[in-house]
Design a protein around this nucleic acid. Structure first.
Lengths: 344, 344
DNA sequence: CTAATATGCACAATCGATTGTGCAAAGGGG
DNA sequence: CCCCTTTGCACAATCGATTGTGCATATTAG
C-alpha cells in the first residue's frame, strides 16, 4: 500500500503543466494575480492546469509558511458524554463555518492527561484552544493565556482575570431548583453532589444554600453526599443518605447521571417517586419526560454553551484581543414535570 | 495580542544555545546521536538547552518533511448523538495511544458536506480516515480507497471489495427482536424504520423479514413507516400506523429516538405500554431501564464498534495493507425488560 | 613517522507552499 | 530614435524540521 500510494499533486506540477514558475502559479491560484500583474491568460492556464490535475494545496506547507494552521484544539473530560458531545458539536460547526478544523481530545477526567493533551495540541500550533478543565491543575492554562494564545474555558472555569469562561448559571439554577423543593414543603433535602471543588459543583452548592437562606430555613451540610457526576456516585450517595436519614423527602441530583443512580437506589429501597420521594436533577435529558416519574430538572442550554465558547474563541482570533467580558453565564431553565410532590 | 505573542522556541535557537549546528541538535534530540556519532557531551548540552528553553518541536515542520502527519480524520453524521459520540471517543482514545491526533468533523447527515469535509481532511494530509457515510454518495470514498489511503467505514457501509467496514450485526439483531415479538404472540407488528436505503435500515428490514419467514408468518410491508432515525420520524410513523392499523399490538422502533417518538404518540393515543401496546427498540440507552415501561431493546456494542474501527485503521497504517477480512460485524445483545407483553 | 581509519560535527538539500525583489520585454512620450 | 515607465513573470529566501554527505581533527596501525 505505502509503495503504490499515489502522491498528491503539488503546486510544482501545476506550474510545470502550465509552463510557469512556482511563484506565478501560487499567485494565480490564490487570487493575487492582479496584485502581482499576472496576465489573465496566464492565470487561466494555471487554473486550468490545477483543475485538470485536481490540485489541492497542502495545508501543511501553507501553515508552515504562513504560521496559521487554521486549527482549533478542544480538550473535554469525556466526549462520549452527551453534554460534552453537544458542546463539541457546536464548536465543530462554528469552526467549519470559519474554515477551521478541530482537533478534539478526551482527557478522561484526568489532569495529567489534560496537561499532556494541551502540550500536544500546542505542538501542532493550534490557533485557539477550548478546554473544559478537569479542575485539579490550572497552571498550564494560565500559562497559555499569558502566551496570548486564544483560550476559552467552558462549563468549568477558574476565577482569573485573564481567563475567558463560559458556564451555565449553576448558582441560579440550583437556587431555583431548591426553591421549588422548599415551596413544595420539603425541608429535609438530600443533595447528590458531583465532583467536589469543581466550579459547577461549588456554585450549585452556593445556590442551594442561598435558596435555604432566602426562606430562612437552616441547611444541614450532612445531607450532602457524592463525589462524582456519574451514575455510581449518585447510586451510592442516594443509598447512603436514604439509609442514614430516612426522613429525607426529596433529593436534588447534581447531574442526570446522579439522578439515574438515585432512581436505582430508591427503587431498591422501595421508595416510589414521587409518592415516597421527590427528585429533581441538574441537566435535562431527552428521556427525562418519559421516565416512570417524568423527571423535573434544570435544563442547561448546552448548544448555547458551545456556540458562545466558539464565538468567543473566534473573536479573540480575529481581533487579537480578549473580550471585554471574561465570565459568560448562560441562563438555565427549570423543566417542571412530575417527580416532585407537594407535602406538609 | 497578536503582536506580543511570544513565538515558540525553534530548534535553531536550541542549536544556537548549545553552540552546535541545526543538524546536530536535531540528531541529539531525536535519539540518533549514536548513529551519527554525536558525542555524549554534545548530546547532553543540546538536551539541556532544549529543556531550559522548553523546546517543543513543530509537528507542522516535522510532518512536512517526513510526510507523516500523525493525523486521523473522522466524519460522523452528528457528533452530538451519543451513539456517534461513543464511537468518536473510542477512536480518539486509540489514536492517543498511538500518538495520533484526530480531526473530528460533523457532516450533519448531509452528503455534500461529507464530501467537502473529506476533501478538507485530505488537504491536511491525514494518514487515515474513518467515516460513517451519510450514504447518498460514495464515489469520494471508493476513490480514497483506490488511492490507498487507509479508510474504515463505521456503522454504515457499502458492499465494495476494497472498503473496510465495521457495523453491528443489524440483521441478527432485528431478527432476534422480531422473533421475540412473534414468540410473544404478536402478529401485527408495526415497523418504525429509520433512514431508508442506509445499510443499517436495510439490514434490519431483512432481519425482520427473516424472522417472519422462519416462523412461516406473512409479513405485511404496509406496516413499515418512518424515514429517519430521529424522534420526529418515530412520532409521526407511530401515529400514522396506530391510527391506520388499530389492530397493531407491537411496535419495533429502529432507533431509541424512534422509540421515544413512539412513546409520545402512544401516550397521546391513550395506549399504555406494555398493556395496550408492546414496544422494542434498536439501540439501548442508559435511561431505558428507568422508563415508565422499562424498554426492551437491542443493544449495540458501540464502544467495540469504535475500537475495532480504530484498530483496523491503525493496522492498515502500520502494515500498509488492507486487512484480510473487509466486513466486520459486531454482535448485538437483546436487553429484555418490561415493554413487551405476551398475548394470544 | 606516515598513511589509514575513526570520530565529531557542519553544510546544504528537502518537504510544499508564500512572498519580496529583480530583470527582461513591451509600450509610450519627447 | 532614445529613455522611461509599465507589464509580466522568474529567482530565491523563508517557515522549522530531517537527513545524506563531506570535511576536518584525532586516533591507531604499520
Amino acid at each position: 500500500m505505502s509503495k503504490s500510494t499515489s502522491k498528491p499533486i503539488t503546486l510544482k506540477q501545476v506550474a510545470a503543466a502550465a509552463g510557469v514558475s512556482l511563484s506565478t502559479a501560487s499567485r494565480a491560484l490564490s487570487g493575487k494575480a492582479e496584485a502581482y500583474r499576472i496576465s489573465s491568460t496566464t492565470e487561466k492556464s494555471v487554473r486550468d492546469a490545477a483543475k485538470k490535475l485536481q490540485f489541492s494545496p497542502s495545508l501543511l506547507a501553507r501553515s508552515l509558511r504562513s504560521q496559521r494552521t487554521k486549527l482549533w484544539g478542544i480538550v473535554l473530560p469525556n466526549i462520549a458524554n452527551p453534554f460534552f458531545a453537544a458542546i463539541a458539536r457546536e464548536i465543530a460547526l462554528t469552526a467549519e463555518e470559519n474554515a477551521f478544523s478541530v482537533l478534539i481530545t478526551d482527557s478522561q477526567e484526568n489532569s495529567e492527561t489534560e496537561v499532556h493533551l494541551v502540550e500536544q495540541l500546542l505542538a501542532r500550533q493550534i490557533e485557539g484552544l477550548i478546554v473544559c478543565p478537569v479542575g485539579i491543575r490550572n497552571q498550564h492554562l494560565t500559562k497559555i493565556a499569558k502566551q496570548k494564545l486564544p483560550l476559552v474555558l467552558v462549563d468549568r472555569g477558574f476565577d482569573h482575570k485573564d481567563l475567558v469562561t463560559v458556564t451555565s448559571d449553576h448558582r441560579a439554577g440550583a437556587r431555583a431548583a431548591t426553591k421549588l423543593l422548599l415551596e413544595s414543603g420539603h425541608r429535609t433535602i438530600g443533595i447528590l453532589q458531583g465532583l467536589p471543588d469543581t466550579l459547577p459543583n461549588t456554585e450549585r452548592l452556593v445556590g442551594v444554600r442561598e435558596a435555604f437562606a432566602l426562606q430562612n430555613i437552616a441547611f444541614d451540610p450532612a445531607l450532602i453526599a457524592g463525589n462524582h457526576f456519574d451514575e455510581t456516585s449518585g447510586y451510592q450517595a442516594a443509598g447512603k443518605l436514604l439509609s442514614e436519614y430516612p426522613e429525607i423527602t426529596a433529593l436534588f441530583a447534581f447531574s442526570n447521571q446522579n439522578a439515574l443512580g438515585a432512581l436505582r437506589a430508591a427503587g431498591e429501597l422501595g421508595r416510589k417517586i414521587p409518592d415516597d420521594l421527590s427528585l429533581i436533577a441538574f441537566d435535562d435529558h431527552p428521556f427525562a419526560a418519559y421516565l416512570a416519574a417524568p423527571l423535573t430538572s434544570v435544563n442547561q442550554d448546552v448548544s448555547q454553551l458551545g456556540r458562545v465558547a466558539a464565538r468567543l474563541l473566534m473573536g479573540q482570533i480575529k481581533t487579537g484581543a480578549l473580550p471585554e467580558e471574561r465570565q459568560h453565564r448562560i441562563p438555565v431553565q427549570l423543566m417542571i414535570r412530575a417527580s416532585i410532590m407537594k407535602i406538609g
